[in-house]
Design a protein around this nucleic acid. Sequence first.
DNA 1: TAAACTTAGACCTTTACGTCA
DNA 2: AGTGACGTAAAGGTCTAAGTT
Length: 258
Amino acid sequence: MGFDDICNTALGLGLGCLVKQENISQLDHHQQKKKQLFLKHDHFSPSLLSLAPSYDTCAIIDAHQQQASSLSAASSFSNSSVKRERDLGGEEVELERICSRVSDEDDEGSPRKKLRLTREQSSILEDKFKQHSTLSPKQKQALAEELNLRPRQVEVWFQNRRARFLTKLKQTEVNCELLKKCYETLTEENKRLQKEVEELKSLKVTAPCYMQVGAATLTMCPSCERVDNVGENPSTTLFTLGQKSHFITPFTHPSAAC
DNA sequence: TAAACTTAGACCTTTACGTCA
DNA sequence: AGTGACGTAAAGGTCTAAGTT
């Protein structure tokens, strides 16, 4: 996999978006553009872009959590036990957390509390998001029931997930641009070096085995073999590559010639 | 049929909380 | 133990499309 492959991948990402945006260029509204990016219901699969979420590891659900989460967890509100659950990841802790949750009914009218979705819930939501970046009301309801969450929570999760996805998409596009610039710079440099090699080769052909310049007037970088004339007369730079070892003078600072 | 109104859904911004270093 | 950074759930506001009157 070469650099082109990398760039193509990145470009593919960018082009994918461009195609979407192209379709909606007439609409003249930022929200419509965003809607087109996700192409409601089934038309767009975020997973195609392979933008792995930072918490993809949530997909790894151990047996303990599956067992614990099977306990019909109500809409989850986290408390201090969440940290311990992360540290230990054991069944007891998960149970403790689930038991500490309060029901939806309890939450009505109370100031908002931040819940922490279980890994299984996150994993399922993530899977669904890979299939559809948006949900129909039916899908939302079904998913909410499956996860023992309120439909509103599922809705909010998808909204936030879409926002995160777009952020990553933008970041990927930025990275793509940087890679492209890097590639162009390297291509330029490569061309320049190729040209230099050709020039040196031609010098070898036109001035074989003949050198009027004293050895002490030339220096050569041991690493890149570029020759630098340190003499006073610019016309004395003729040399033969085949005899380069004769002209090498000690480099006090090899990189200086490069 | 067109205009006004309503509603649902999506996005954006902000807030608040949990976690981690 | 205290703190700042970061991730993310949630709330509130705005906008738009579709449906209704």
